[in-house]
Amino acid sequence: MDSLAIAVVEWVINLVRAYAIAGLVFAILFVTLFIKQLDSGAQGWALGFRILIIPGVVAFWPMFAIRLLRGKGHPTEKTAHRLAAKQSAGAQ
């Protein structure tokens, strides 16, 4: 077997593992302590909901970490009409 290929694949898999472990630590802290700061929909202690979003938070944890550091909530969607309305309001 190609030893270079093995080394590259092992390195990539270890990188993904490190990202996922860091994400899991962040996700557990996020769903227990910080989620309400970013999303007012996370009211109460709905355990099933918090467990359900952990895999996604593990995948996208840098996005939430940056939002927490910047003190920002969730964004509003950008559609053609929202952008046109914003542009029009700004021009007035």
């Binding site: 929909g41 099933g48 467990i51």
Partner: peptide
Amino acid sequence: MGVAYKAV
């Protein structure tokens, strides 16, 4: 949303 999230 204006209501609390649930698992489902």
